[in-house]
Amino acid sequence: MYDSSDPRSRMAAAAKAPSISGHYTPAEYGLYYEEDPQETAADTRTWMSRGQNFLVAYSEAEPGAVLERKGQIDEYVLLLPDKGKGAVIDAPEGRTVAEGFSLVILPPGDTRIALPDGGRIARIFSTRSPDLVARCSNAASFAAEHPRIPPFEPWPEPPAGYRVRAYSLDIPKEPGRFGRIFRCTTLMVNYLDPQQGPRDVTKLSPHHHDDFEQGSLALDGAFTHHLRWPWTTDMTAWREDEHAYCKSPSLAVIPPPAIHTSRGMEEGLNQLVDIFSPPRADFSKQPGWVLNADAYPMPPEA
């Protein structure tokens, strides 16, 4: 259910009723602003939490910090949300300098991220790396796979090959386009248009997903995530509504088929980033929505 001003209101699936059979899994919250980090080094603190198919490693780094991955199994995404605080990235094909306020797709294999000016960064991975999965604060919640989510299948490899791909996030809002969406073989990331001040409570967007989860990473401000699970004939499966107030930085993992909408709460900037793994076919089919669609083909079945 979307307000008519929301670009998602044009999508054919917007009015579908949610699936309402079986028991539900709860939402997950990583409140990085009040939890201890999962990794602490002399120049970096990193918090890690996950959904079934993706995980987030959020770091606060001092100038000169370096983050490395050896033998990474698949592509991952780096977010550099602060203007003026970029990264120098070394990968098998060479060196890339990424400016602050950008989204970077990194290839499989060995990668090194140097942060000359420090700052906030978020790395988003699939859950195919056991070493990363084991460090997540909520690893126990996914000891068994959640049955409503199909097994992870990566999307096709980029025809031009794997390499570092850096994209500026300094993209003006465009009528009819929803946020700033990028995809790779493992992830779809929507760096939503900035929200200044509290969200209009008469223009919320309660909706659901049948068979995939959503991560909502709050980088600035605060959000209330409103969730409601449909009733079924089995009352033992019912869950109470949630109105989870999360400051930044934080990650909310919203499971299917919870009806959900998120509301920015603070007077200044409220910045949310939505995460899906694998990429969403419905968003990918919307003309002009995926800003790097030319680099990553859709699977034939999509």
Rank of each mutant, 00 (worst) to 15 (best):
R183N: 08
F182W: 15
A237E: 11
I105P: 01
Y2K: 05
P63G: 04
R112V: 15
F283A: 04
R280E: 04
G109S: 02
D294R: 13
Q52I: 11
S21H: 05
H260V: 10
R120L: 10
H226W: 10
G71C: 07
A252T: 14
K173G: 15
L187A: 07
V133I: 13
G179R: 04
S141I: 00
S59N: 05
K203L: 01
M1V: 02
D3I: 10
E99A: 15
S4K: 12
S19P: 04
A143M: 02
Y24K: 10
T46L: 08
T224C: 06
A61N: 15
D82L: 11
P194T: 13
L132C: 01
A237N: 14
A65Y: 10
P18T: 05
R50W: 04
G71K: 06
E62R: 13
L55C: 02
E62G: 08
R50K: 11
V56Y: 05
D282H: 09
Y162N: 09
G268F: 02
D241I: 06
P156A: 00
M265S: 10
S5D: 13
A244M: 08
V189K: 06
G30K: 08
R199Y: 06
W229V: 07
D241M: 12
L55I: 11
P108C: 04
F125G: 03
G51Q: 00
E28Q: 13
R123H: 05
N270K: 04
L192P: 00
T202Y: 05
Q38F: 03
R123A: 07
V88F: 01
H225T: 09
T186L: 05
L272I: 14
A57V: 03
G51I: 12
P279C: 08
K85S: 05
L79W: 07
D210E: 14
V97T: 14
A122F: 07
S277A: 15
P151D: 12
F101P: 06
A114F: 00
N138E: 04
G176N: 07
L55V: 10
L115M: 11
A295V: 00
R50Y: 05
A281V: 08
K83M: 09
V88M: 02
D210M: 09
R263D: 04
G22E: 09
S250G: 09
R163Q: 12
D234F: 07
T96K: 03
T236N: 12
G215V: 09
K173C: 06
S137W: 09
D294G: 12
K247C: 05
H226A: 07
I259D: 01
Y162F: 15
I124A: 03
P116R: 11
R45L: 11
W231E: 12
A293G: 10
T40W: 00
P147W: 03
C184S: 14
G109L: 00
R45W: 08
H225I: 01
P92N: 06
Y245W: 10
L79A: 08
F212K: 02
R69E: 14
G109M: 04
G30F: 03
P300F: 00
A91N: 09
F125S: 00
K16E: 13
F152H: 05
Y58E: 12
I149T: 07
D36N: 15
W231K: 14
K83Y: 07
L192W: 05
A13N: 13
Q196A: 13
R69C: 01
A166W: 00
V189G: 01
E28R: 13
P198G: 14
E157V: 00
